[in-house]
Design a protein around this nucleic acid. Sequence first.
DNA 1: AGTAGAACCTGAGCGC
DNA 2: TGCGCTCAGGTTCTAC
Length: 292
Amino acid sequence: MPELPEVETVKRGLEPAMVGKRISNVDVNRAGLRFPFPENMAARLVGQKVLGLSRRAKYILVRISGGDVLLMHLGMSGRFTVHEPEGQKNVPGQFYHDAGTGKHDHVVFHMEDGTKIVYTDPRRFGIIDLFPEDQMSDYKLLVSLGVEPLGNTLTADYLNAAFKGRKMPLKAALLDQKIIAGLGNIYVCEALFRTKLSPRRQAASITGKSRPTQRLDELVRVIREVLNEAIASGGSSLRDFAQSDGELGYFQHSFQAYGREGEPCVAPGCAGQIERIVQSGRSTFFCPHCQR
DNA sequence: AGTAGAACCTGAGCGC
DNA sequence: TGCGCTCAGGTTCTAC
C-alpha cells in the first residue's frame, strides 16, 4: 500500500474537498473490497456533512454528522482522485464526466458542490467501513494497533520494552502493527539502512537492560526522520500511488536501499552492494556489508 | 511463543 | 503478439 506518508498525503489532499461539505450522493459499484461494505452505506452517508478527517496508522477516518465515522484503508493499490466540476482544477487528462466510471472505480463520493471523490483499487485489498463514533475505542480494526510512529508515544523506552526478549528479526518487529502502527516495508528498509542495522538481527539484540541502547535511540530518531521527509515530499509514488489530486509524490527518488538490488551501497566509504532477501514473505533490501 | 506461508486480487514487467 | 512466470506499498488467518 501506500504507506503512512502516502496515506497522510492523501488525507491532506482530501481535506479541502470534503471538510465542511455535505455528501449529496454515493455510488457503490460493487458489494465490497476486502470486506463487504456495511449495510446501507450510501444511505447512511447521503445528506451528512463531513466534520473532519484524521489518520490512525494507515487508516483515514472521516467524521460525519449523524455520529458515524467513515473508515478507509488503501490496501496495496488503493487511490483517491478528486474531480472538480468543469472549469475548475481537475485531474490532468481526464474529463469530469468520466471520473468514477473506470473498471476499478469502486466507490464515488459526490459532494454538494459537484466535486467527485473517486476510490480506485485494482487489487481490492482496501477497506471502506462505517461505524458509530462512540464505538471508536472498541472498533476491531483499530483496537490492537500500536503507537503512532510520528506521535510522542514512540520512544526508545517504549521500543526497548516492546523488543525485549523478542527473537524475531528486527525487520519483522518493526513491521508488526501491534508494536508500531503505520510502518510499512519501504520505510522499514530505509530506516534500517540509515541506522546501519541489519534487518536480520534479533529485535532483542538492540535492547538494553534498563535503558535503551544508543542504537535504539538512533533508530527512533531515524524512523521519524524518514517518515517526515517522505511526507514533506508528498509521499512516494510507485505504480499504484497518486496524490489525491493526481499529482505524484517525489520521495521514491530518495530511496537509498528499497528497490536497489545489485546497486552499490551509497553509504560513505562502504564498498558493499544492496541485496534483496525475503523475510516473512516480504522483500528486504539492505547492504550486508555496512548494516550490522 | 514465534514464524513461515497462504490467502485475499489484479496488473506490470520480463524472458522466451 | 502472447504465454507463463514473478513481483508488488497490507493485513489476517492457519499450520507447523
